[in-house]
Design a protein around this nucleic acid. Structure first.
Length: 934
RNA sequence: AGGCGCGUAGCUCAGUGGAAGAGCACUACCUUGACACGGUAGGGGUCGCCGGUUCGAACCCGGCCGUGCCUACCA
């Protein structure tokens, strides 16, 4: 590669697509299962096929890509498998809506087969959108291994899993109380129901006791369900009602009478009236009571959410809401409604469509979870799988321990059809991998079960079904268990827990070693991003930029309300400027602290766009001065015998810092502290490499003329600076690559590199810290240089000495410090932009000068030609002196404490003594300066 | 009702036992031969409150207040 010059500012749009294409063409995303390298696997949790990339995706895929690129550069056989999920309910809903809109038809008008054909057509057209978007983000996914949960292979895996579990008695069919969404028209698992507290009422209703004048008053939040009551329950030890147990009560409005039972588990004596109506057909608690007391189960709602018999004819056909009104009115009329009080209740709503879910008796398929949960608990207890952050272990354990059977059948068309066939003749069920010709029991005709499986059933198999299971493929052998599962903590139960259960059951090993759960991306006010609120930031808008008009159009298309549109107008009057994928990635990474939500703002992203530009310009600077530089000689010497190079202080210092930072970045990534790794890089590149080293190297680099015209020493110094700068930059870019793949590649390609270097940064080695380069002395000396330079700069700034002026500065120092400063005089002068006179201290203050004190006894004087504002200088010195005195007092108090000196580690005590000596010296100098001034 | 977080500079957040840090915002100065998407300097914090442990606490322990999330069948 030649040393091309870079443009003045980094423009991601000119860079990103080009490199993504290059990486793909080179096959660098593909992992060869035959490679003789240790595997590192991440199987990406599949996003919904209906989805388009949002910030949550951007975060999870950024973190995964960071991990995978890092491990790939560490010479692991890194494999990151992409794919999407068929998202049963969501997808069916999308296609149904489209059908309604374009043809005004329902899925029933088309019939099952034709409808499914339409879904596949929709998938072919819009379903791959998200995978395209992931490419924009720079994700190094192994696209050759891309999977879809409805693929043939994965469908076969689902059938295999179902059949085996059925044969092992882990899948059964039963009539149970399930969650029913009357809009999606399907059963839901407990996890798909969201509970929120909502305002409601507690109605007190009087039930006449049969054969007496007594009335028993119950309290309920759902009066309409009384039409399905089959008992009244009181606490068996409640003196008020004990005598009624065994008698019967009349259910108002129905004329039916039901038993009064005693049940200590259901009824609390303190709550409400102390008596509870029991509706086993429409309440999970009551269902349990019904089982305990052999009560009748009445269903009075149909699947569409309307009342049916045995509810009295009068109410049949009403919706649940209307029935409530009617029932309350009628109770009032009968004077059976005793009291109404406000009461909050947790209503269950469908996670997909927000419709209130109704507990309904229904014949469904279930997974027996207890036997699956036990190994999933053990695997974590035994440390075979660990959670990061560790605090999720408890949450997982709690859920696994209290797990309930899982309803897996859905009354949908889009999904894996349940591999069970019902016999018309004998009603036997045949469960099989392939459609049976006839009933296994009586040989009669069979028809396949109409239902499909919960989408999460196939997701549970994902870590191994994607690798070819049930076939014993090379991939399966090589990449199972996966190394890391990286996902949001919101789907710990949906995905992780079920993958654990399924993985252990079918593969006998947990599906992953580490589960890394990241926090949620929210807006800058900490609110969940939602289209309804209009506070979403679309990752693609951030990457490529967006006009206000296009943002409004997109929001409108997504069905955002007016309020959301006006929010967008207010927040982004000028749209969003293009920041590029790398800036977005870095912004997400640096904020991804464990256990804390990420409040994302455009402003924050912009600051990392500036960072990208900073890296770009530092590189641009370097490239300007690297012409004719031979990287091989320097690199070899640095690796084999760094001392032989005779590096200057600045070089030794920055290489030492680079080495430490490499180690810190690597350590942080090892612990999933992605944010700290990113932060370290940001600081190193900006605050050390750019702010200090580049400035320090300028004099050495900025020498005119061809090498032959320079003296040997000047030419040598230039080579050292060139070599050091290249090394730091090249190493920093490799460190940065997992975070900012495009920028790092674009620049890296242009840097001079030793022979035999690969053709892409993504297949180079991740930097390995070289202990030889750690240089404590250089770091200490640089510390002094920085402080002296800082003192001069402060004085210049305080007294308005213009930058163009090159004032005379007098510095007095003693001992080792004087030696060091003498040796580094050129550096100090360059950075301070001053002529520095060094002398043995203590010295006499030059006429009309202002002063600072550094490291105890280094005196820095800036003589001012004209008049000094005595009052201002006195005030400044006063402040410094006060600080010095406070420092002395603090140390004195500490060292005066006998138990501190006795019990604190010697190292700490020594440090404190040194600090006191330094502060005392400083105090003395400052006091003298002040006295002189007055 | 339980569980888990969080509370540090105006804002957003790092920091897990030895005298408080970053980014943004703010103030002053500066077109200095990489960068104004920049530079230099500066202002700004009793680390939510109260106790305890410790020579020493933002950090460990207990309680309280505020706040967020998750789980749960209290009608």
């Amino acid at each position: 590669m030649s040393n091309q010059e870079l443009g003045k500012a980094y423009d991601p749009s000119q860079v990103e697509d080009r490199w993504y294409r290059f990486w793909t063409e080179q096959g660098y995303f593909h992992a060869d299962p035959a490679a003789r390298k240790a595997p590192f696997t991440i199987v990406c949790p599949p996003p919904n096929v209906t989805g388009s990339l949002h910030m949550g995706h951007a975060l999870t895929f950024t973190i995964q890509d960071i991990l995978i690129r890092w491990k790939r550069m560490q010479a692991y056989n890194a494999m990151w498998l992409p794919g999407v999920d068929h998202a049963g309910i969501a997808t069916q809903l999308v296609v149904e809506r489209q059908l309604k809109r374009t043809e005004n038809k329902t899925r029933h008008d088309l019939g099952r087969e034709e409808f499914l054909r339409r879904v596949w057509a929709w998938k072919a057209e819009s379903g791959s959108r998200i995978t395209e978007q992931l490419r924009k983000l720079g994700c190094s996914l192994d696209w050759k291994r891309e999977r879809f949960t409805m693929d043939d292979g994965l469908s076969a895996a689902v059938r295999e899993a179902f059949v085996r579990m059925y044969e092992d008695g882990l899948i059964y069919r039963a009539r149970r109380l399930i969650n029913w969404c009357s809009r999606c028209f399907t059963a839901l698992s407990d996890l798909e129901v969201e509970h929120k507290d909502e305002a409601g009422s507690l109605w007190h209703i009087a039930y006449p006791v049969l054969g007496s004048d007594d009335k028993l008053t119950v309290a309920t939040t759902r009066p309409e369900t009384m039409l399905g009551d089959t008992a009244i329950a009181v606490h068996p030890e409640d003196e008020r009602f004990k005598h009624l147990i065994g008698k019967r009560a009349v259910v108002p409005l129905t004329g039916r009478d039901v038993p009064i039972i005693g049940d200590a588990e259901l009824v609390s004596k303190e709550f409400g009236t102390g008596a509870v109506k029991v509706t086993p057909g429409h309440d999970p608690n009551d269902f349990e009571v019904g089982v305990r007391h052999s009560l009748e189960q009445l269903s009075i709602f149909d699947t569409a959410g309307r009342l049916i018999a045995p509810a009295p004819v009068k109410y049949v056909g009403l919706t649940v809401a209307d029935a409530r009104k009617a029932v309350l009115a009628d109770l009032e009329a009968e004077a059976a409604l005793v009291k109404t009080e406000p009461h909050a209740l947790a209503l269950g709503r469908c996670g997909r469509c927000d419709t209130v879910v109704e507990p309904m008796l229904s014949l469904q398929w279930f997974v027996k979870t207890k036997p699956l949960a036990a190994p999933a608990i053990a695997a974590v207890e035994e440390g075979k799988t660990r959670f990061v952050p560790e605090s999720w272990t408890k949450v997982y354990m709690h859920w696994m321990t209290n797990i309930r059977d899982w309803c897996i059948s859905r009354q949908l068309w889009w999904g894996h059809r349940i591999p069970a066939w019902h016999c018309a003749g004998c009603a036997a069920i045949t469960v099989a991998r392939e459609a049976p010709a006839a009933c296994g029991k009586c040989g009669g005709a069979v028809t396949q079960d109409e239902d499909v499986l919960d989408t999460w059933f196939s997701s549970g198999l994902w870590p191994f079904s994607t690798l070819g299971w049930p076939e014993q493929t090379k991939d399966l052998k090589n990449f199972y268990p996966n190394s890391v599962m990286e996902t949001g903590h919101d789907i710990l139960f949906f995905w992780v827990a079920r993958m654990m259960m399924m993985g252990l059951y079918f593969m006998k090993k947990p599906p992953f070693h580490t589960v890394y759960l990241h926090a949620m991306v929210v807006d800058e006010d900490g609110e969940k991003m939602s289209k309804v609120k209009g506070n979403v930031i679309d990752p693609l808008d951030v990457i490529g930029g967006a006009s206000l008009e296009s943002m409004l159009a997109a929001a409108e298309k997504a069905g955002a309300p007016k309020q959301a549109l006006s929010n967008i107008k207010k927040t982004y009057p000028d749209g969003i400027p293009a920041a590029g994928a790398d800036s977005l990635r870095f912004a997400l990474a640096v904020q991804a602290a464990q256990g804390r939500n990420i409040r994302l703002s455009l402003q924050r992203i912009e600051s990392f766009r500036h960072f990208a530009n900073k890296v770009w310009n530092a590189s641009r600077f370097a490239l300007m001065y690297l012409k004719g530089f031979d990287p091989d000689r320097f690199a070899d010497a640095l690796r084999e015998e760094p001392k032989s190079l005779g590096l200057g202080l600045a070089e030794r210092w920055i290489l030492s810092r680079l080495t430490r930072v490499s180690k810190e970045v690597d350590d942080a990534l090892e612990d999933f502290r992605v944010n700290e790794a990113a932060q370290q890089l940001y600081r190193f590149i900006w605050n050390e490499l750019c702010d200090w080293y580049i400035e320090l190297a300028k004099p050495a680099l900025h020498v005119e003329g061809p090498a032959s015209s320079l003296t040997d020493e000047v030419a040598r110094r230039k080579r050292m600076a060139q070599g050091t700068l290249t090394t730091c930059l090249e190493t920093a870019l490799r460190l940065l690559h997992p975070f900012m793949p495009y920028l790092s590649e674009e620049i890296w390609q242009k840097l001079p590199k030793p022979l035999g270097t690969p053709n892409s940064i993504m297949v180079t080695l991740y930097p390995i810290p070289d202990a030889q380069l750690i240089d404590d002395e250089a770091e200490t000396v640089m510390g002094l240089v920085q402080e002296v330079v800082g003192a001069v700069r402060t004085l210049r700034a305080e007294y308005g000495v213009p930058l163009a002026a090159r004032p005379r500065v007098v510095v007095f120092a003693t001992g080792a410090r004087l030696e060091v400063l003498t040796a580094q005089l050129a550096l100090v002068q360059g950075l301070a932009r001053a002529e520095v006179e060094l002398a043995q201290g203590p010295g006499t203050a030059p006429e009309k000068s202002v002063q600072a004190v550094v490291q105890g006894d280094v005196e820095v004087y800036l003589p001012l030609g004209g008049l000094i504002d005595v009052a201002a200088e006195a005030a400044r010195l006063d402040k410094e002196l006060a600080k010095a005195r406070a420092d002395v007092a603090f140390s004195e108090r500490k060292l005066g404490n006998a138990s501190f000196v006795d019990r604190a580690p010697a190292e700490i005590v020594d440090k404190e003594r040194a600090a006191m000596a330094e502060a005392k010296a400083r105090e003395e100098k400052l006091a003298a300066a002040l006295a002189r001034l007055k």
